[in-house]
Simulated scan of single mutants.
Amino acid sequence: MKQNKKDYLKIILWMVLGGLGGAIGMIGMLYIKESTVGYTLFSDFANFFIENIFYVQLGLAILTYGMVSYWLKKAKRLKEEARIETDEEQDLFDEKLDKLLNSSLLVNSVHLILSFMLFGIAFDDRNPLFWPSLIIFLLVSFVESAVEVHIVRSIQEHDPMKKGDPTSTKFHSVWLDSCDEAERTYIYKVGYHAFITMQNVLMWIFVATLFIKFIFHTGNLTILIVGGIWLTNQLAYFYYAAKENRDMTSVER
Results as ranks from 00 to 15, higher is better:
His193Asn: 09
Tyr239Arg: 07
Asp91Cys: 07
Gly219Met: 04
Glu88Val: 14
Val174Gly: 00
Asn127Met: 12
Phe48Ala: 13
Ser133His: 05
Phe123Glu: 03
Leu72Phe: 11
Ala208Glu: 06
Ser141Ala: 15
Phe195Met: 10
Phe137Arg: 00
Asp91Val: 14
Ile136Asp: 00
Trp204Phe: 12
Met29Arg: 00
Ile136Ala: 00
Asp165Val: 01
Phe93Asn: 10
Thr232Phe: 13
Leu231Gly: 04
Ala23Val: 07
Val147Thr: 14
Tyr65Gly: 08
Arg246Gln: 04
Leu112Gly: 14
Phe45Val: 06
Phe123Ala: 11
Ile32Met: 11
Ala194Arg: 12
Leu202Asn: 00
Ser109Gly: 12
Asp98Ser: 15
Asp180Met: 04
Ala82His: 02
Ile32Glu: 05
Ala241Cys: 08
Arg253Ala: 08
Phe206Lys: 09
Phe130Lys: 05
Val110Arg: 04
Glu183Tyr: 08
Leu129Gln: 12
Ser145Gly: 06
Ala23Pro: 01
Ile196Val: 14
Ile135Asp: 10
His111Ala: 05
Arg77Met: 12
Glu181Asn: 15
Thr209Trp: 00
Thr209Cys: 00
His193Lys: 10
Ile62Asp: 05
Trp14Gly: 04
Phe142Met: 04
Asn233Leu: 09
Thr185Asn: 13
Leu60Pro: 00
His150Asp: 11
Gly19Ser: 04
Lys213Trp: 09
Leu210Ile: 03
Thr169Val: 14
Ala182Leu: 11
Phe130Glu: 03
Lys79Val: 06
Asp180Gly: 05
Leu78Ser: 00
Ile84Thr: 01
Arg153Lys: 13
Phe195Trp: 15
Val143Cys: 02
Leu9Gly: 03
Gly59Ala: 15
Lys6Cys: 05
Gly18Lys: 01
Ala182Cys: 06
Ser115Asn: 04
Asn220Thr: 13
Lys99Cys: 08
Arg126Gln: 10
Val152His: 00
Met161Cys: 06
Lys170Glu: 15
Asn4Ile: 14
Lys10Tyr: 08
Lys5His: 07
Gln234Glu: 05
Lys79Pro: 02
Pro166His: 14
Leu106Lys: 15
Ser154Lys: 08
Met161Ser: 15
Gly28Ser: 12
Val149Phe: 08
Phe48Cys: 07
Lys74Trp: 05
Lys73Phe: 13
Gly21Lys: 01
Lys76His: 12
Ala122Gln: 05
Trp230Gly: 09
